[in-house]
Design a protein around this nucleic acid. Structure first.
Length: 517
RNA sequence: GGGCCAUUAGCUCAAUUGGCAGAGCAACGGACUCUUAAUCCGCAGGUUGAAGGUUCGAUUCCUUCAUGGCCCA
């Protein structure tokens, strides 16, 4: 049947050619977007059908045919263009992308008979251009009274059900183009993603940060606890890894005197796929010399609160407070966010006494109690974090800075001056999920070498997410990195929160899938 | 990796403890000059995800596989 439909449409392509119409014409010029007309002529009191008829405002518009309603002597075409997500000029305004074209046989027969004839060859999904005047129908709908109709792109495949759209999840991801044609809320989510990145870029540029790009292909990977993708450079016969984080490259730039840098780019981690993980994902990382992780908490509060309000404003829900609903829960990003030291979390949520938080036996008992799976002989910090993740994370619904992590799990962070078992580090949580990770950077090269060595030992003991040694990074620190604080924020997870998306695949245009059979 | 669920027309979904595979939308033919999920009449469209098995008979039961979803690891 699909073949039948395609064959029928190929016949229409041939018919178009026969009548001298190019089925993929590119000489139609657009003067207006649908959103322009809605913005300009929305006021039905002022722009009555009489006024519009008298003014006879000429416009040319192009879009995809989403609806055809025929009445013998007249036809309505429901068109959509792209003006809901992108428009020249003011990018802060979301517009309506739908506009109706009205074709009257009586008008076209005298003025442009070809256009009336072409209606026979128009299918749902085709991309057409219409020239005409702005009008308002008897029902009050802003429309274009068409004086010329062109088929600009004749399509071969039928669109999904006009009412139910495309709901099959696999099909939506595999054929995202169809998803985007059919589902306006999907279009809006990806527009929001674009606005979020734009906001972040402006936020850091305004604070004197320099945007940089550092290598995706690295001989030595590092900067996070994760498994990399391995690849190979043929000409140099060089094994390479896709980066798991830009951290070590960005800190080399701080050594070089780029004291405020940020990068928004892709990371790659060779891990499973889930509603919260895609093997390639986008992160923001930024580094500021002469700052501490305390400063970054304040910066993060400002960034996220402003971002939430910008997103609310962009979708037309301007609000006084930066409160956004995620999966039915209102998240309040009004500063200051809650601070929760890791060890305090163990006391509050894992039932440990304050004097037990460094006690292996007590931690192991707590791990068993809360259902955290731990291997024997783990360094104490791993044990603490395993208990923390199981017992505390589900409670971190409102934005929370989890602070002062164990040193064992923080090979790149500065030791706390007050307690060398801990580091000056925080993670920002919301909706029970980690959104970002930050610390005062370790800039003592000897300490850093020792931490790498501990990581290498952990790797030898079977931790395949432990860091490899990076001698050049040590050398860079030996040239002196100023006291610095740095942070990474997962853009995809942030956009999930801001678009109320339950799955990371809803905020990645083309998520990784198995190839089609 | 494990458990559960799903896969039927282009799309969205039905199909009685195993008994003729259906509807709406889209398509196709027709009527219709203000509809907006237009309406009305007519017509057509299927290797029921794949392979195998049980059975007189399988969309339905069993096995394996594929793809996806949810939960767990």
């Amino acid at each position: 049947m699909e073949e039948t439909i395609i064959a029928q449409r190929r016949q229409k392509v041939a018919d178009l050619r026969e009548r001298g119409d190019h089925p993929h014409a590119n000489d139609f010029r657009v003067t207006h977007l649908a959103a322009d007309l809605h913005d300009t002529y929305a006021d039905a009191e002022r722009w009555t059908s009489e006024v519009l008829e008298a003014d006879a405002i000429e416009v040319s518009l192009a879009g995809r045919v989403k609806a055809v309603r025929k009445f013998g002597g007249m036809v309505f075409l429901g068109l959509v263009d792209g003006s809901d997500v992108c428009r020249p000029g003011d990018q802060t305004a979301i517009g309506r992308r739908d506009i109706q074209a009205a074709l009257f046989k009586k008008v076209l027969r005298d003025g442009h008979p070809d256009s009336w004839a072409r209606l026979e060859l128009v299918d749902l999904g085709d991309i057409v251009g219409v020239r005409g005047t702005v009008m308002r129908t008897r029902r009050g709908e802003l429309s274009i009274q068409v004086s010329e109709l062109r088929i600009l792109t004749k399509t071969l495949r039928p669109l999904p059900d006009k009412w139910h759209g495309l709901t099959d999840v696999a099909a939506r991801y595999r054929q995202r183009y169809v998803d985007l044609i059919m589902n306006d809320e999907v279009r809006r989510a990806f527009r929001t993603r674009s606005r979020v990145v734009s906001y972040i870029r402006r936020f850091f540029e305004d604070r004197g940060y320099l945007e940089v790009e550092t290598p995706m292909l690295q001989p030595i990977y590092g900067g996070a606890a994760a498994k990399p993708f391995a690849t190979h450079h043929n000409a140099l016969d060089l094994p390479l890894f896709m980066r798991i984080a830009p951290e070590l490259a960005l800190k080399r730039l701080v050594v070089g005197g780029f004291h405020r840098v940020f990068e928004i780019n892709r990371n790659f981690r060779n891990e499973g796929v889930s509603t919260r993980h895609n093997p390639e994902f986008t992160s923001l990382e930024f580094y500021e010399a002469f700052a501490t992780y305390d400063d970054l908490m304040a910066l993060t509060e400002t960034l996220l609160a402003g971002l939430v309000q910008a997103v609310l404003a962009d979708r037309g829900d301007a609000a006084d407070a930066p409160i956004i609903e995620y999966q039915g829960v209102a998240l309040d990003f009004s500063p200051p966010f809650r601070r929760l030291p890791v060890l305090e979390g163990l006391v509050t949520y894992a039932g440990l006494a304050p004097e037990q938080v460094h006690d292996r036996a007590a931690l192991e008992a707590a791990a068993a109690r809360v259902g955290a799976k731990v291997k024997p002989d783990l360094p104490l910090g791993y044990l603490q974090m395993a208990v923390f993740e199981e017992a505390c994370e589900p409670h971190l619904i409102q934005p929370t800075f989890v602070t002062d992590f164990p040193l064992d799990v923080s090979p790149l962070s500065r030791k706390k001056d007050s307690d060398p078992r801990l580091v000056d580090r925080f993670e920002i949580y919301a909706a029970g999920r980690e959104l970002g990770n930050a610390f005062s950077e370790l800039n003592d090269p000897d300490d850093q070498r020792g931490r790498f060595e501990a990581q290498v030992s952990a790797r030898a003991a079977g931790d395949d997410e432990a860091h490899p040694m990076d001698d050049d990074f040590i050398r860079a620190l030996e040239f002196g990195m100023p006291p610095t604080a740095g942070e990474g924020i997962g853009i995809d997870r942030l956009v999930m929160l801001l678009t109320d998306a339950p799955s990371i695949r809803d905020v990645i245009l083309f998520p990784l899938l198995r190839p089609e059979a």
